[in-house]
Design a protein around this nucleic acid. Structure first.
Length: 108
DNA sequence: GTGTTGACCACAG
DNA sequence: GCTGTGGCCAACA
């Protein structure tokens, strides 16, 4: 049972996204746009989302800690429901399918 | 190399 | 507050 070897197939951009995503501490969240900005590409929010969607390290990368800029859940490869559940587990309260960015946004 | 797709973002009505 | 439109970026067929 080989560990994940897909790493070799991952593009540099995707890897950067995973790297930043992995830095998000528990109980905090970040947004696609913010991550894109950290990468030096303020307009790559979409690409960031795609990278997470195709992330080869699904359970390993806290992709559920990444949400939309407006506080919406965004999406999740398994259902937003699951994502919300996970966030709640980490102590993030969700109100009406929305997350309070003022409270949980993680400033890198 | 071109066109399509996507877990987005900002703005206008 | 919601919907529609345009724009940006990267991966994939």
């Amino acid at each position: 049972m080989a560990k994940i070897k897909r790493e070799a197939k991952i593009s540099p951009f995707d890897r950067s996204v995973y790297a930043l995503t992995a830095r998000i501490p528990k109980g905090k969240v970040s947004t696609y746009g913010k991550i894109a900005r950290k990468l030096g590409k303020p307009g790559a929010s979409r690409a960031v989302g795609q990278a997470l969607n195709r992330n080869p390290w699904a359970p390993q990368i806290p992709c559920h800690r990444v949400i939309s800029s407006n506080g919406d859940i965004g999406g999740f490869a398994g259902g937003k429901k699951q994502k919300i559940k996970l966030l709640k587990q980490e102590g993030v309260k969700i109100g009406k399918g929305r997350i309070n960015l003022d409270r949980y946004e993680f400033l890198m």
